[in-house]
Structures are given as C-alpha cells and as structure tokens.
C-alpha cells in the first residue's frame, strides 16, 4: 500500500511487525517506483560516498571557491586533540564529521545531497559516527540511511525540500529530523520513538530562514550543519526516554508547510534579507560577487 503520512507508516509497521525501511521499500516496489534491490544499491553507494567525503574533508584545509570559508574542521580537530570537551567522543566526532562534509561541499568535493547539498553534513555525521562507535554493521547502517530517506520523502509530500520554497527548515531542518529518526532506529528505538524523534526535531526548527551571505552555501550553512547534527541527537535522546511530541509529527509537518508559505521570500534563499543583508555581508559581497 502507498504510505503518505507518518501515522500510516506507524500503523503499517505495527500491524505487520515491520521496520520503517522495510515498509517503504516494499511500498515503492509495489507501485513500480524502485525495486528493493535498487533502493539498497543506491543507499550503499550513497553511504560509501558519504564516508569518502568525511575522509577527505577531515584532511583538507583548502578554502571554498569564494574564499569565505574552509578550515573550521581543522580548527575543531586541533581543539579536541588538545583540550577538554563537554561532549562525549561520539558527539565530538559528529560535530567534526558534519564540518568535514560541509567544507568538502563548498570546495566542490564530491558529497551526497541528503536531502540537499547545503545540508549534506547532517545525516552522514550522525549515523556514521554512531555506527563507528557502537559496532553497528554496514547492513544496519544502510537500513538507517533508508529510514532517513523515508522520513525526508514523507515530509517532501507536503513541502518541497528547497530553501527557496521552505527556507532552511526544509533543508537543514529536515536533514536533522532524518538523522534523528535514523539514529533512534540504530539505537534500538521502536517505530513510535523514531517518529517522535522526527516530530521533536522538526518542531524545534520551524521558521528557520535561508539567508546565505553572498547567496552561497557557506555562511551560515557550514556551521549550521554541525549545530543541527547535534540537534538530531537531542531529539533522539528525548524520544528514547519515551518523551513524545504532543503535536503529532504529521501535524508538525503541516505547521512547517504553513510556516514556509508565511515566510517572506526575502528569507528564502534570495540573499535579500537577514544575515545576507548585514553590513559585513554586504562588504563580503563586494569581494566575492563584485
């Protein structure tokens, strides 16, 4: 059957005692969209590309094409080598991997748009770090990535995942919800906990604007990937404690779609408002696009 809402997804999973990724793969296979083989194949290829992006991002200090960014991942790694942190090793890894991937993106390295290029650091940093530190098998990791895809797909049915349409809530916000649900699944959370992770993560990013400096996917996007990767972990922690989103996840998505419509176009990827029109941004613009 065709699954279009989180409630339906939950019902089908519980009724048939299936996991989220299993339900959606068979739904898409049934409707002739993609066979389970193809979905798993793409997920495997995407996962390998994500791992490669992290690896090269960790080693590089090369700046972006505009010269405005690059080098923060190196700084963070240096800091963690020398100093105490409030974060556990896994959380430190998540922050570092998120920056590594996003910086790799702005230097035209190869990344996976997940769901978009601007938000490419969030899902991989969360799921790969957790898997590395908790002996999660490659198969389980692929299942987690497919579940992340299912979450993005259901949101995308109500709201286009593009900053120009939904602001950053539709890019980094949705990536964070995808990462959160995938993480909860890997931690052994049940389907209700996974879907609550999504609702909790999304509720906290409603209205997030897309106002990139010089119109480029750099400021504030790169650092936001690190912030929203940790945000995904926070939502998963709450959900694993059986804390629920009082507003059901589907209704949160509705609120997000409405918020997207109410947001000014000046704050949706046009670089005509917010951070993009600050004094410093205007100065930077003269150097970059002038």
């Amino acid at each position: 059957m065709r699954v279009t809402t989180f409630q339906e997804l939950q019902d089908v999973c519980l009724k048939n005692n299936k996991k989220i990724y299993e339900v959606m793969m068979s739904s898409e296979a049934e409707s002739g969209e993609n066979t389970e083989y193809h979905t798993r194949l793409q997920a495997t290829q995407s996962l390998l590309a994500m791992q490669r992006a992290i690896k090269s991002g960790l080693k590089s200090k090369e700046p972006s094409i505009s010269g405005m960014s690059g080098g923060d991942c190196a700084k963070l790694q240096k800091h963690y080598r020398k100093n105490q942190s409030l974060f556990t090793p896994t959380l430190r890894k998540i922050m570092t991997y998120a920056l590594a991937t996003s910086e790799e993106n702005v230097r035209m390295g190869t990344i996976v748009a997940c769901p978009t290029a601007g938000s490419c650091g969030i899902v991989p940093s969360v799921i790969i770090s957790y898997a590395q530190d908790n002996k999660i098998s490659q198969d389980e990791l692929i299942n987690a990535l497919i579940t992340a895809g299912v979450i993005g797909k259901i949101v995308a049915q109500k709201l286009s995942l593009a900053g120009a349409v939904g602001g950053c809530q539709a890019e980094c916000g949705v990536a964070s919800a995808m990462a959160s649900g995938a993480l909860t699944q890997m931690r052994g959370g049940n389907v209700i906990q996974v879907i609550n992770s999504v609702g909790l993560a999304l509720k906290n990013i409603l209205g997030l604007t897309c106002d990139p400096v010089c119109g480029l996917v750099e400021i504030p996007c790169i650092k936001r990937n690190a912030f929203l990767a940790i945000h995904a972990v926070t939502a998963s922690e709450l959900a694993m404690a059986d804390i629920v989103s009082v507003i059901p996840t589907d209704e949160v998505v509705d609120a997000m779609a409405q918020t997207a419509q109410l947001m000014s176009p000046l704050l949706k990827e046009s670089a005509k408002g917010g951070l993009a029109k600050t004094k410093t941004a205007i100065e930077l613009e003269k150097g970059v696009n002038g």
Partner: peptide, 23 residues
Amino acid sequence: MSNSTVIDIISPIMAGPSSSHTA
C-alpha cells in the same frame, strides 16, 4: 506535493556546493 522516492532523498552523489546551481 512531490512524489519523491527514497532514492531521490538520499542522492545524488554530486560535486558540491549546490544542487540547483552546480548539479
């Protein structure tokens, strides 16, 4: 709105930095 598949959401593998402006 859109009828994205799971594959659409977790791909493409691409040279950055922007899906609309680069890929």
